[in-house]
Design a binder for these strands. Sequence first.
RNA 1: GCCCCGGUAGUGUAGUGGCCUAUCAUACAGGCCUGUCGAGCCUGUGACAUGGGUUCAAAUCCCGUCCGGGGCGCCA
Length: 428
Amino acid sequence: MPRTYIGALRGFDDGTDVVIYGWLQEARIMKNVSFLILRDNTGIIQATFKNDEATLETIKRINRESIVKVQGVINKKSVSKSGIEIKGTSVSVVNEAEAPLPLPVIDPVQADLETRLNSRFIDLRKRNVSAIFRIESSLLWGIREYLHGQNFIEVHTPKIVAAATEGGADLFPVRYFEKDAYLNQSPQLYKEVLMSAGFDRVFEVGPAFRAEEHNTTRHLNEFTSIDIEMSFADHNDAMSMLENAIKSGVENAIRTNNDDFEALGISISVPETPFPRITYEKCIELLSSEGIDFKFGDDFSPDHLRMIGSRFKGFYFITEWPASVRPFYTMPKQDDPKLTNSFDLQYREIEVTSGAQRVHDPKMLVERFREKKLDVKSFQFYIDAFKYGMPPHAGWGLGLERLTMILLGLNNIRETTLFPRDRTRIVP
RNA sequence: GCCCCGGUAGUGUAGUGGCCUAUCAUACAGGCCUGUCGAGCCUGUGACAUGGGUUCAAAUCCCGUCCGGGGCGCCA
């Protein structure tokens, strides 16, 4: 007999014979009858057994979280709370679990995040933990769908590279045979080169590596970056692409992940577009109206951003950042080159996306390299792409884990990462 | 990189110098219970991160080490 998913049982008639496989979440053994609570990826079901001697012996020996096979008959007139159960005819252990568990799956005690991450495979068995990753998947799917609809193609650029993207951030060195190489911190240079190649619109979903020794609840040393680059476009085009992509992601999650939001005990709504925009200089005014002295050319601290963010319901763009705090490839503002055609997408104090119109004139690019005191030679492959017909272009990079974190109201980015890499953690 | 904080059974905790052969919950083991559903009841097993020091006396105070949490900087 083929396996039936637990979530599909309601679709069958009362009295149907079925075989189900699952993790034994709990066994409640009474004098005359036993209840086995089984869980698979699709749901939870109770199987009941009359306590004949052989069955009782089997059931007593099964540890929690063992994989078991139950054969039985669907009972839709059950007095159980769910109204449906399996009247078991046979039960067997497919693969035994050791006891006690390193981490409780259903106990009321809440394990620390560190303990949970050390036994992540068990942690993820919890409905409210796996829900995060189902929603994350749906968010990404909705974003992909939108970008495909806008004629973007999905690309994959190298993660082992010879040179830094922006010169600033710390890179993880790797040995590449007889050469020194690094793990890429961003696909920035490659996606721009693809604009010169004529692809017009590309996006990439992939890992980005930062060797920064940060120690916060919103940083990872390896995270998933959703990057786009589009030709014959400016920062405004990129911003509207971003808000619509996020909207599409949220819509998709709301449409398909009802049970997961329920498991998390939250509900979210589709953000209204367009997202509000505030310039960097307006932010300074805002801060100074609150008595905060802020120097033009500095970056905002989390406290500043909390203050600015309190003026907005959810997402908001901060635009026209000074050139001093943006990377070399950022296009200066035409009538005021101290500023740039750049933006960050913020959600309260959290930066979710960073983007801009890019410099496309090779002479201006080289000039910007000099200003930032970067070695032109190590970026030669990149600069070459600008010499032979580079269209004007713009793009952004969106942190998937951060997006999921802020949408779900979670307080630690490790919650939205299956196996997070942080300052000290590389296992599991 | 800088600053603050913490490590007690499988898990989560109580404990601030003697009342600690260390509290409670849950897990685990055994038993009881005619349908449970956060099952209930009884019994039992199980821990002071590590090395040194102070003291008549250390889970508790001091120092080192290891491990972890948080904030800042930087960024997605």
